[in-house]
Write a protein that binds this DNA or RNA. Structure first.
Lengths: 215, 215, 215, 215
DNA sequence: CATGAATGAGACTTCATTCAT
DNA sequence: GATGAATGAAGTCTCATTCAT
């Protein structure tokens, strides 16, 4: 019965398409209005569907948000494996930060929709912490420890420092949330390299460099 | 008529007391439920007053939030002048970070009440940006530039780096928001010194230190 | 064209079968949830069909209920003719009551589905009154009058008494509606004979019997 | 502080008055439309209040119904003690039936509102059974047993017969539900006496009477 | 000044019904 | 004939705000 299978496949595809359509619309409206002040009516109209249809695909307004958290979690875990070798700290950290910035920028609507509610909704925060934030912190913490053992990095409290680094990166997201990315390619690179410099070498002028200057 | 003045003073004091009473209650309820899901009824009951009374002191529920932003702004500007001399970078940055942490921890309810709504409410965010965040970034940026000129710090994009540092510090606030301060005095000091180390010296082992190690 | 007729017959049978299938499912769901809280979706799933299909056989959800009333009406009129001779009042009334109890018990789902809505839906009640209740009352009223004329029964307001008797019988249905028939064969017989005794002889001890007792 | 007490009393009275006002309106609307098809909007308008106000006094639409059940339960228990002596069976049973008829007629809206939903709502039915129906059946059953022991009534299954009698009486309520009480005082008396006759003496002509007739 | 009863707009969600496939 | 996705009207309930007492 290839026909039957065809129909089933088609139906499934249609379903996924609708879900995406609704989720995209919801992300935009949530991003504009915030979760609470967004109305299902506006989401429906943004999606070009009727309100009832939304409820054929999602159980409740809140489930729209949860689905977004899942989406973001999936996106956040990709590509962490195809990074430059960790022996080259400069390249590795640069890639890491770039990758996080890209995650942020390419999911800006999603993040803007999610973030405020994460601060308020316990379950949602749980989801975000375990699926998005904790993995990132873990990865970075492990990396710090390995490079320390290899003698490349100083001895630090890896979890504190990892959190601080991620917080620093994400705080730019906080800024972008409000001024939609007036950041061109070039200045983003500058930003990344500045951050890498900060994290790897700190602010203080090194004694050797000091000598160079003084001479 | 000293009597009249007394009465006026008394009245004013009473008014301020009521406002504080209401604002404290509101901060707690907003912190628990989030702005949208908090009800004026619950705030009134938390304050031990009736709903009507709230409206004798504040124009609307939203004005409660705005008043909180003002409160936080006032707090945030205090004591930035009584810092250790900037020539001692270690001490100065340590004091800076400690000061921000303390601001965060002593206003946790306020921050928790405010933060989600700042991401969503444009006016409120404006207020927060100009009164709280920008001053901090400006101060830090200026400091970085001065120390660079003095030859103590490397040449960096001061505004980028300032933002990153503040983001790093505040990201711990984000954590504390959900696990009310299980952070004892001692580990907070550790945290601060770890951050200072990160910002001043970076992660990379310095050549001189490397030699020490190798020997 | 016998073929054509065959096909037509077959089609008709299929149609009736589908209608029964749907009506049975609807009766069960209505019995469980009540008419208003039953959904066409649940009825469809209970019938193993899709929602759309229901509307190929019935005009609306409400028509399902009407069809049930018709079914009940048809059932209720059967067998009233094959009763024992009315000269034997004991046997006749026993048969009458037994017959009503059986109607009730064998249509319990139907009755449970119908009854609440009959109290609320005017058209439906009309249907029920004219097709089910009134015939029963009429029959019983006629019977009472005939036996009165024959000198077997006292002179009573036949319509009042008929209603009361039917109400008494049906009130047990009301009980069974909620405790699905924990009534075994034996106690049902007892119940019937108790009712017959009540209606024929009343509660009061007869003077003759009194004498028997006293002696 | 008599003033304060006054105000509290006044407020309480106002509250009770509002509750009655709302409950009366709800009873009428439920009686007209049935519970499910009645809307809170219509109830509010019938009560001359806004929808919101209803929810200041009752938690939900369903709680309106529950409050009605409570009202009916309270009414139903009154006056059962001030009946004629049970030695005079004729008078006692007459008073009993009259009392039930009056309960029915004076709460017709309430009953009409409640009855359909009782068949459908499990909790509500529980309430009705324990608070209204069971006490009545118990009382009547006890009475039958006592009179049997006293030699006035035949030996019957008291619970069966009690239920049947109550069912018979209530079935008239069922009729009245739809044709609002076209029953004048006089025919109600007739009805009662007919019922009393049926229950006490049954239908069958008594041998002694038969003789009278024949003679 | 404080109170809290009343308001009414508006939100989320359900579900009978239709119709293209 | 069967399907089930889409519809959209309608309903219950919440809550910030007002105002008479």
């Amino acid at each position: 019965m290839p026909e039957a299978r065809d129909r089933a496949t088609k139906r499934k595809r249609l379903k996924e398409q609708r879900e995406t359509q609704i989720l995209d619309a919801a992300a935009r409206v949530f991003a504009r209005k915030g979760y609470e002040r967004a109305t299902t009516r506006e989401i429906a109209s943004e999606a070009g569907l009727s309100e009832g249809t939304i409820y054929n695909y999602f159980d409740s307004k809140r489930h729209l948000l949860i689905a977004m958290a899942v989406r973001l979690a999936l996106d956040s875990l990709q590509e962490l494996d195809s990074l430059p070798p960790m022996e080259d700290e400069q390249a590795h950290v640069t890639a890491l930060i770039t990758n996080r910035f890209e995650l942020l920028l390419s999911n800006l609507d999603l993040v803007r929709a999610l973030m405020p509610q994460i601060l308020v909704d316990d379950d949602l925060r749980q989801e975000y912490m375990t699926k998005v934030l904790s993995p990132a912190i873990s990865y970075l913490g492990e990396y710090l420890k390995k490079r320390e053992v290899a003698g490349a990095f100083r001895k630090v409290k890896a979890d504190f420092v990892a959190r601080a680094m991620i917080g620093a990166v994400m705080s730019f997201g906080f800024l972008w949330l409000q001024q939609p990315s007036d950041l061109d390619e070039r200045s983003r690179d500058e930003l990344v390299s500045e951050m890498v410099g900060l994290f790897l070498d700190g602010l203080r002028v090194r004694p050797s460099e000091q000598k160079d200057r003084q001479s």
